Amino acid sequence: MTSTNPHPVAHMDLAEIRDLFRLNQQDVGDILGVHRTTVIDWEKGNQPSWLHLACLGLPTVLILRRPPLPVTAQDLIGARASLGLEQADLARLFGVHIRTIRTWEKGRPPSWIPVALIGLSLQLQVPFWHNRASAK
C-alpha cells in the first residue's frame, strides 16, 4: 500500500452531503443498505470508521443514477487486488478486524461495501492527483 495516512481526504459530513444532493435519510439508507434510523444515528455522531469512504463514493453512485450492484466475495477479492491492497490494509482502511475481511471474502460482504470501495479507490488516488497539481 502506498499511502500511510488512512484518511487523506478532509472529513465529509453525511448530513452536508445529503443536503447538497437533496437526499433524505431514507435515500442514504437505501443506497447503503441500512435502515433510516442507522443514518440518523450516524448523523448524531455514532459513525462507523468506514463511513468517510462511503461519503466519498456516494456522489459517484448518484451520478451513475443507479444503485451499485451487490459485491460478491470474489468481487471483493478482485477489487482489493486491483487496488493493490492486502487483507490487513483493507481491514485498517475500513476500520474492521482482518478476520472480518476474511469472513467477507469467504461469504457475503455487507451491502455498503460497493459504495465504500468507490470511495476508497478515489481516496487512494488523492496523493497522485495532489502531487500532479503541486508539480505544475
Rank of each mutant, 00 (worst) to 15 (best):
A88Q: 11
Q87C: 12
L20Q: 14
P110D: 02
I40R: 06
A10Q: 10
T60A: 10
I63D: 09
V61I: 12
R65I: 02
L93R: 11
G33Q: 09
H52E: 14
L76F: 10
H97W: 14
Q25E: 15
E105V: 09
L76W: 03
H97F: 12
T100N: 09
K106T: 10
S82V: 12
H7W: 14
N46Q: 08
L53G: 00
I31S: 00
I63H: 13
F128T: 09
G84D: 07
L64Y: 09
K136F: 05
S134R: 14
F21N: 02
F21M: 06
P68K: 00
A15M: 15
V115L: 04
T2D: 11
T38N: 05
T100I: 05
P6K: 00
N46I: 08
V39M: 07
I77K: 15
L122A: 09
S3L: 10
S111A: 15
V61K: 08
K44T: 10
L56E: 01
A73T: 07
T72K: 04
A54D: 04
V28E: 04
P110Q: 08
I31Q: 00
V34E: 03
S111C: 14
D75T: 12
S134I: 13
F94S: 11
G78S: 12
W129E: 00
I113N: 02
P67Y: 05
S49T: 09
P114G: 05
V71M: 15
A79Q: 04
S134E: 05
Q74V: 08
R80T: 14
G29I: 02
Q123C: 03
L56G: 01
I101Y: 02
L90K: 07
I17Y: 12
P6Y: 04
G95V: 06
T37S: 13
Q123H: 07
G33T: 03
G45T: 11
G45R: 13
A79W: 06
R102T: 15
A133C: 06
